[in-house]
Simulated assay, not measured.
Amino acid sequence: MKERMKILLSNNVITKESFESILLVIDYFNREWGLSESNEQYQMIMTHLVRATDRIKQGKEIQDGLDCDIYNEMESMSEFSFIKEINSYICGMMGLREVPETENSFFLFNITSLYEMRS
């Protein structure tokens, strides 16, 4: 996982600031949730997070958020308030003070997916 991030950095796909932050996030999820870096979905989520962070900081956020039905289903989960707390914590680690709702809907979806992968 860290090698993938190094490749993105060396090819100027992500910034050094986001690279350093995503390493902290990866370590957090590995340590706290016991996630495997070899899991393809986990790798995709971390890649999305680091790329979205740079997009947001550059003012180039996406226009459309997560499908409303999927979001409503996720929001009805009993764990949703916990997922929102973790999302806020992770956004802070990435240096994001304000996250557009469109991006945040996908962040919450990704955190939910990671939550379901925990060991």
Rank of each mutant, 00 (worst) to 15 (best):
E3I: 12
R4P: 02
R4T: 09
M5N: 07
I7R: 12
I7W: 14
S10Y: 15
I14R: 06
K16W: 02
F19C: 01
F19Q: 03
E20L: 08
L23E: 11
L24D: 12
V25G: 07
V25L: 06
V25N: 05
I26C: 09
F29C: 08
F29H: 10
N30Y: 13
E32N: 13
E32G: 11
W33K: 14
W33C: 13
E37M: 14
S38P: 07
S38H: 12
S38E: 14
N39A: 03
E40H: 07
Q41W: 04
Q41I: 11
Q41L: 11
Q41C: 00
Q41T: 10
Y42E: 03
Q43A: 12
Q43W: 05
M44L: 12
D54M: 00
R55C: 01
I56E: 02
I56C: 02
K60H: 03
I62D: 01
I62H: 00
Q63G: 00
Q63F: 11
D64A: 11
G65D: 04
D69R: 10
I70V: 13
I70F: 08
M74D: 08
S76C: 03
S76F: 04
E79L: 04
S81H: 08
I83K: 08
K84D: 02
E85C: 09
S88I: 07
Y89A: 07
I90A: 05
C91F: 00
M94E: 02
L96H: 05
R97F: 11
E98I: 14
P100V: 00
E101P: 08
E101W: 05
E103T: 02
N104L: 13
N104R: 12
F107L: 08
F109V: 00
N110D: 13
L114H: 03
R118G: 00
R118L: 00
